[in-house]
């Protein structure tokens, strides 16, 4: 996150990012201020940036610095892009509550409009991954699930587990469960590589493949039935073993106690 890639340094990159950011924020701005639709896009954008800057100064600057340059408490946000802001604030990870091995997902503190304003402000600090549009992460092709599954097993399952249930990393860090995570946020996480997650930029994982992965994750965490019954957390043999001992052997021993017990004697009267 701290370093800019060669491509991001391209002189035209800023312009491209700005245009994309405009497109992304435009729609939301329309919802935010429908009466002012007539206003020029550029002023809408700058208004969002201004609002975002104010929000940033109150909520984020104590760690990330007034201009997002970073401090000992938080990394620089120059060049992280709007996607990173949308992910971090949109999943409640930011603002962070307390220091720890990893900032967890929690209740979202800002409205989507405010998040967009913050994202616009941070995006203005330097070019970076842009918040994806609905088309980018919404899949219509049913074949995408199986293609996404293959990609997921190559790129994601090692940390997030075969069913997206998450897993442990070193020293208290963890890959979170993907249960109930918005498609947009899954997409953004791949784009930006939040915290210790590596990024999967478009150069090595094209947009279409990210869409396929999102399709697989949404399918497997939401729509996939468990034909065999209780999924036991989809955590593999450990929970199966626990279940087998407690409910399997436990039930059998309970029955064995009944089988072997002496029948109640008739009380002498």
């Amino acid at each position: 996150m701290k370093k800019l890639s060669a491509r991001r340094r391209h002189p035209l990159a800023a312009l491209v990012v700005l245009l994309l950011a405009l497109a992304a924020t435009g729609g939301l701005y329309a919802a935010f201020a429908p009466a002012e639709k007539a206003q020029a896009d550029s002023s809408a954008q700058s208004l969002a940036i201004d609002e975002g800057k104010k929000l940033f100064a109150v909520g984020c600057s104590s760690c990330h610095g007034l201009n997002g340059q970073g401090s000992s408490d938080g990394p620089s946000l120059v060049g992280v892009g709007s996607a990173a802001v949308d992910f971090q604030v949109g999943t409640g990870r930011m603002p962070a509550q307390q220091p720890g091995a990893q900032v967890p997902r929690k209740k979202v503190a800002y409205s989507q409009t405010e998040i967009d304003q913050l994202a616009a402000f941070v995006a203005s600090l330097g070019p970076g991954p842009v918040t994806p549009t609905k088309d980018q992460y919404t899949s219509t092709d049913p074949n995408n699930v199986s293609k996404g599954g293959e990609l997921f097993r190559t790129n994601c399952a090692q940390c997030h587990n075969f069913a997206g249930q998450g897993g442990a990393l070193t020293r208290g860090k963890f890959a979170p469960s993907l249960d109930g995570v918005d498609a947009k946020h899954i997409y953004e996480a791949m784009q930006t590589g939040p915290q210790n997650m590596p990024s999967f930029p478009d150069t090595t994982m094209p947009e279409e493949q990210k869409k396929q992965i999102v399709a697989f994750v949404r399918h497997t965490t939401n729509d996939e039935p468990n034909p065999g019954g209780l999924a036991l957390g989809s955590l593999g043999p450990v929970t199966e073993g626990l279940f087998g001992w407690i409910f399997g052997l436990g039930a059998l021993i309970a029955v064995a106690i009944w089988v072997a017990a002496h029948t109640t004697k008739a009380k002498k009267s």
């Binding site: 190559t154 399952a157 090692q158 043999p237 199966e240």
Partner: peptide, 12 residues
């Protein structure tokens, strides 16, 4: 070349 975390054997 693929793997899932929670790679454990059966309990025994």
């Amino acid at each position: 070349d693929q793997v899932s975390t929670d790679a454990q054997p059966d309990w025994y």
